[in-house]
């Protein structure tokens, strides 16, 4: 058996822009000039990717980077514009049924299940759609309800469940056919911290059982905790690939300084950027509206800090807090793209 669970080869997905965009495009071009082709948006731009059996692979990137489009092509919901992929050895264009049989996919979380059915009815329904005989399905559904600690509530309508419980049913739906490969698109999005932690524990348990998991997330800590390897995707391209440690090593020689500043004004950003040895400055909204959070990278914090203090503590602006940290995956992302993940 091929050791690759998923293999993408030069996968490309382009979408035609909407008419309004085309009209805008035509207007700019001028009336008498020859009509141009409809503008194209490239969501995924030639991705090459190999995911080995039994590994958890995190696809990390900001909104609109191409994570979900990639997953949608792999699970045959979207047809690639060019390139191809193999899932469990099956080609996504020519063998879509076998691909779907090999996959358990979680998209759109709680909205992907029927709220007017009970948890048990949902799972029995999807088991039948995966062609599982009723007798086997009943047993499997019981196992899943027990695993998800939903046995007591299994016969209540899903509309009465909490968001976390709905997500557990949605995950159970993906697991009902015991597929070897799981695609989880933002599995903890919108969950409270406890529910999110339960989902992360479950992913680790599924990995220990031998499942291959492709996980998309824009939570850096989640990707760091769960993934054996991570691909960072931006503007449809994979811009970095490796274990979390390998990625962090890329900027190991750098230090990351987090600042909290009161009395922030825009020009200060340019002032700080001019300090020698400082790069990748990111301004973030603070939890406290009177404070501004700043993140920056430097190769020599000892030299940079006195200059920072001098430049910041002027004209009523004060440095309130400062931390020097080891680089995180988010800093790797900032280093690669020059922007924060949630931009």
């Amino acid at each position: 058996m091929n050791n690759n669970a998923i293999e993408a080869i030069q996968l490309v997905k382009q979408f035609k822009q909407k008419k309004s965009k085309k009209a805008e495009f035509d207007k700019k071009r001028g009336f008498f000039q020859k009509k141009a082709a409809q503008p194209i948006f490239t969501a995924v731009d030639g991705i090459d990717l190999v995911i080995h059996r039994g590994e958890v692979f995190g696809l990390l990137g900001p909104n609109g980077a191409g994570k979900s489009t990639t997953i949608r092509m792999l699970c045959t919901l979207l047809e690639p514009t060019s390139g191809t992929a193999f899932v469990n050895g099956f080609e996504i264009r020519k063998q879509p049924t076998q691909v779907r049989q090999s996959l358990g996919t979680l998209l759109a979380g709680e909205r992907s299940i029927y709220w007017k059915l009970t948890g048990r009815e949902n799972l029995m329904y999807f088991a039948a759609l995966y062609h599982i005989p009723t007798r086997v399905a009943k047993q499997r559904v019981e196992e899943l309800l027990k695993l998800m600690e939903l046995t007591d509530r299994a016969d209540e309508m899903v509309e009465k469940y909490s968001t976390g419980m709905k997500q557990r049913i949605a995950i159970s739906k993906a697991l009902v056919a015991k597929p070897p490969i799981l695609l989880f698109d933002e599995p903890t999005l919108g969950l409270d911290p406890q529910a999110a932690r339960n989902v992360r524990d479950l992913i680790l348990k599924l990995k220990s059982e031998g499942h291959t998991i492709l996980l998309t997330t824009h939570y850096m800590e989640e990707a760091d905790l769960l993934s054996d390897r991570i691909g960072i995707i931006d503007k449809g391209k994979i811009i970095a690939l490796g274990t979390p440690e390998q990625l962090k090593e890329q900027i190991q020689q750098k230090e990351v300084i987090h600042l909290e500043i009161s009395g922030w004004f825009e020009q200060l950003e340019h002032v700080i950027k001019e300090i020698p040895g400082i790069d990748h400055l990111i301004v973030k909204e603070g939890e406290n509206s009177s404070l501004q959070n700043i993140s920056l990278q430097t190769v020599n914090s000892r030299a940079a800090i006195p200059l920072l203090i001098d430049k910041v503590n002027v004209n009523g602006t004060h440095l309130v807090n400062m931390n020097i940290l080891k680089p995180s995956l988010e800093d790797v992302f900032i280093n690669l793209t020059g922007k924060a993940l949630r931009d």
């Binding site: 469990n88 049989q101 090999s102 056919a177 015991k178 070897p180 059982e209 031998g210 499942h211």
Partner: peptide, 20 residues
């Protein structure tokens, strides 16, 4: 690697499975 029994291994009669 753990050998996971999945739907591919069940090989049900396709027509019966579709009717189900």
């Amino acid at each position: 690697m753990t050998n996971l029994p999945n739907v591919l291994n069940l090989k049900p009669n396709r027509l019966l499975a579709e009717l189900n």
